[in-house]
Amino acid sequence: MKYPITMKTVLLGLSLLVAAGSVPAVAGDVYVISHPSVTLTTAELRDAYLGEKQFAGSIKLVPVDNAAVQSDFLAKALNMDAGKYASLWIKKGFRGGLASPSVKLGDAEVVSFVKNTPGAIGYVSAPVQEVMLLHKY
């Protein structure tokens, strides 16, 4: 049996193709990205944001926070809220002289920083091509 190819079918197919090519990030998805010089496991990534890991080989890790998606990242990657995260870094700084991750305003700033800073790790709300994707939460 032959199925007639109508204009309606063509338009529907095109719509599906376009939709498939640009699947929007599900609300709350967090993409952890890094400078190409950095490769970390999820456990190491967690340690880096908790101040327990400062180096990847000889490269100094430079984690940065993204104010726009911080709460999602903290909940999914570190299992804590912003208050506990702030308390933890107060203790880390006071006890060990560690500087807390700097806070960037949004995805564009994080991507730009990570792209240009060896050792940098960040997280964004949508996948990006310019940097390395470490993990998706």
């Binding site: 700097s102 564009a108 730009s112 920083f113």
Partner: peptide
Amino acid sequence: LTQNQGKNFSDYGIPLH
């Protein structure tokens, strides 16, 4: 703006706690 946002400004001042 984008270029500057990507820079590390840690050497431009130290947070006081």
